[in-house]
Amino acid sequence: MDLVLTPTWYLVLGALLFSIGAVGLLVRRNPLVMFMCVELMLNAVNLTFVALAWGLNDIGGQVAVFFVMVVAAAEVVIGLAIVVAIMRRRQDATADDLSVLRG
């Protein structure tokens, strides 16, 4: 059987990765793992962009990926900075410890 890889396969893979990231962010409690899930979501979108650009035969979607990579990198920097600031005060903080604010 010939398996032809069409963009659709990559779109489905992108959707799956995006869902894994989204669910992971909701269920995991470690801030670092939560960042990784956000990164997974952004990279799933990158895969979608590339697959669509291939399908549409248009360069625009591939250019978008570069911008998204820059944004993702900047996001990690800021996220880690905030985590470091928190860890300095409370070692081993998990998302459940961050519950001073409620009501």
Binding site: M34, A64, I82, A85, V100
Partner: peptide
């Protein structure tokens, strides 16, 4: 500590929603 908690909550939820927004942009592009 409240300020830092606010920061990380805003960051995690904000980047979560940014990812959704970006996925929406990708699908509209498609």
């Amino acid at each position: 500590f409240e300020s830092q908690e606010a920061g990380i909550k805003y960051f995690v939820l904000g980047s979560f929603s940014s990812a959704f927004l970006l996925y929406g942009i990708a699908l509209l592009y498609g």
